[in-house]
Simulated assay, not measured.
Amino acid sequence: MTTPAARLKSILARREAVLLPGTPNALFANVIEGLGYECAYITGAGVTNMYLGAPDVGLITMSEMVQHIAVIAESVDIPLLVDGDTGFGNPVNTYRTVRAYERAGAAGIQIEDQDFPKKCGHFSGKAVIPADEMVQKIKAAVDSRRDGDFQVIARTDAIAVNGIEDALERAHRYIEAGADVTFVEAPDNLEDIARIAHELPVPQIFNYVFGGKSPPVEHETLKSMGYGAGLFANAALQAALLSVHDVLGELQRTGSLEGVRAALASFEMRQSTVRKPRFDAMEKRYT
């Protein structure tokens, strides 16, 4: 049986813009796997929003992310690409982060070249570290992995700071340092989106952010460009947030859920998603 890292490597190498939904918890990961997605992304922004109730401004810690990885990896069998922010420090910290992520069950890590504290890639006011410093983080990440197939994804946020030419130059340097995949964040026009996939020799990730800086791109267009994955990091969280707001707002106004029954998962769907039949079978077996 191939490892999760080998499966993720193979998926991205197809360059078919695999749909990569994000999850902040095991429940959403169960839904993603149950719907037949090949892989999932554990989103740092989503974990920060849902776990801390805070914005994506560099508040989540490495140990908190590792706890989430372990729980989610225990719940699903699909490979997990995990947000590693800036590596949570210098190259030595990055080395430790990769070891911890891999041990917890990640199949790959995404690290970025923002200065600390980092921000969501579609926020304003970002800053990036020197490319030389990021190169050393990538080298540390590559050296620290135990499974050679564990995917090291290098993200650059340089477009917003220095423009597309610097972002592409950085991506080339990160590939030379050993990155398996690169991720040029927040291109704001279709021409640059196409350039990224055409000019960089390794698989690329495009980040669909609803309401973000990048224009919407049809999935077939992204496939024709040869992207490795189309990332929907927080679509599930945004859908859940709107539903919770609407349902609890109706409850507050009317004291009833009758007007929002269509927005509620059935009792049966809820129990199926958390795999209650599996636990029932275990209980029966061991009783």
Rank of each mutant, 00 (worst) to 15 (best):
T156P: 09
V274K: 00
P79Q: 02
P55H: 11
H245A: 09
L52E: 11
N162V: 12
N162R: 15
I205Y: 03
E258G: 07
N189Y: 06
G211E: 04
Q271M: 04
A160H: 05
A239P: 00
Q110C: 14
A26C: 03
A6G: 02
E133Q: 15
T221K: 10
N207C: 10
Q136R: 15
E268K: 09
Q252L: 09
A141I: 05
K126G: 14
A45Y: 15
A179S: 04
A160E: 10
G36Q: 10
A26D: 05
A40W: 11
S243V: 00
P117W: 13
E133Y: 15
I60D: 12
E199D: 11
P277R: 00
D192N: 11
P277Y: 00
K223V: 13
R278V: 03
V142I: 13
T273M: 03
I129R: 15
A73S: 14
T86N: 08
D113A: 04
I69C: 10
D180N: 11
S144F: 08
L251G: 00
L264E: 00
A263T: 00
V82C: 12
T61P: 14
E112P: 10
K137Q: 12
R253H: 01
D192R: 02
E74W: 13
Q136S: 15
D113V: 09
A236L: 14
V135Q: 12
Y174V: 09
I159F: 08
K126M: 12
A197W: 06
A229D: 02
E218A: 13
Q238C: 07
I109Q: 03
G228Q: 02
N189E: 10
L222V: 05
E258S: 07
A5P: 01
E169Y: 06
K139I: 15
E38P: 08
H245R: 08
V260Y: 00
T48Q: 13
A5G: 00
D143G: 10
R145F: 01
V142W: 07
R275K: 07
P91C: 07
D188F: 12
K126W: 14
A106N: 03
H122R: 10
R173I: 02
M62D: 14
R96G: 10
A262C: 01
A229G: 02
P187D: 08
L257A: 02
F28N: 06
V71L: 15
A171C: 03
I164G: 04
D143F: 11
F123Q: 14
K213F: 03
L19Q: 05
A167K: 02
P4M: 01
F183S: 06
V161A: 08
A140I: 11
H198C: 05
A235V: 07
G22W: 04
I159R: 09
P277N: 01
R146I: 14
G148A: 08
V244T: 02
L81K: 10
R278H: 07
K126Q: 15
I164A: 13
V57C: 14
L35T: 10
L237M: 04
L27E: 03
T221H: 05
H245W: 05
H245C: 07
E16N: 07
V184I: 13
Y101F: 12
A104Q: 03
E283T: 02
T23N: 02
G121H: 07
A154S: 06
T156E: 07
P91E: 06
H245P: 00
P24S: 05
H219E: 06
Q151D: 03
N30Q: 13
A13L: 05
R146S: 11
P215N: 06
A167L: 04
R103E: 15
D280R: 07
L257Y: 03
G22E: 06
D113M: 08
G212S: 09
N189H: 11
